[in-house]
Amino acid sequence: MSTNGIESWAVDLAKTTAVYPFQGMEFILFLAGVAFWIWWHVVQFRQEKREIDHVTDASDLSSKSKDLIDKY
């Protein structure tokens, strides 16, 4: 038994097609991939909001901003 159905390379390559493991689960993989992509955006937006809040809440922001602006 093997995860892609091939247990030796004694095969005719002209008749060999997909060789990735767990064939037949591609659509579930696709759904999981889309969910991962959307999850990434959700997490990223939360992280960015927290970062922006951190800046706007910073003490002595205007003085620090002037220093940073001077660095160009």
Binding site: L13, T16, T17, A18, Y20, E26
Partner: peptide, 13 residues
């Protein structure tokens, strides 16, 4: 299609 066997490790393509 992202779930098609041609969109993966495939010795026929």
């Amino acid at each position: 299609r992202p779930w098609d066997p041609a969109m993966g490790t495939n010795l026929g393509d």
